[in-house]
Amino acid sequence: MEKSLFDWIIILLKEYGPYFWAGTLVTLETSILGTVLGFIVGYSMGIIRSTPISPEDSAVKRAWSHFVRFLCSGYIKIFRGTPMMVQAMVLYYGLRQGGVNISPFVAAVVVILLNTGAYMAESVRGGISAIDNGQFEGAKAMGMSHFTTMFSVVLPQVFKNLIPEMGNQFITNLKMTSVLNVIGIAELYFVTKTAANTYYRYFEAFLITGVIYLILCEISGRLLSVLEKKMQGKKDYELAPEYFED
């Protein structure tokens, strides 16, 4: 008797269930690690690129600042201007041919983090310029340095505003890890291809994977909205009655 769609799905899950699970974990690990590290890179870029170059600084310091900015924008141009799949190939095989053997996992994380960093750098820059100039002036007038201003006043506000954007970035990465199968990392897509090849059941295998991706994205979306609500803070505040006069 001809097997139905569900029969195939059950067979695939029975035989390849642990592989799907393992692939899901690898997908999660690479995307979480790559995204978080990428955020750090992105925020650092944002801070560096928003540092004012003061005419009071020495010529050497100014030249250095310009050079660092040049490097930053070069990095952003390269990583936003080329496909992630190509970056993965160039990095992974480039290093191999140069005699440096890194694991596909490390290569995958590095590619994701560099990509995320480049995109986030622009978002952070936008986030910083969206902060009211009065916040900077208030801090400046107190004698806060640029870094103190950034860390205690500006970035906490930028971070809150960028939560939806960071969520986008994470979900994109979750799905984009699939293109990294080209360097042989055993993530979800890679595992699915292997499972599908065994029985030539591509539709069923990828249907399973599609559902897994959907679930992962849905869970991430919900976690992010919880975080967003938490960051909104309380609507009310408590008066401190001990400080009322009389």
């Binding site: 009065g134 916040q135 002036e137 208030g138 007038a141 506000q157």
Partner: peptide, 9 residues
């Protein structure tokens, strides 16, 4: 300042 410039965070 005229516009207070308190830190909103």
């Amino acid at each position: 300042f005229q516009s207070f410039n308190l830190f909103s965070n």
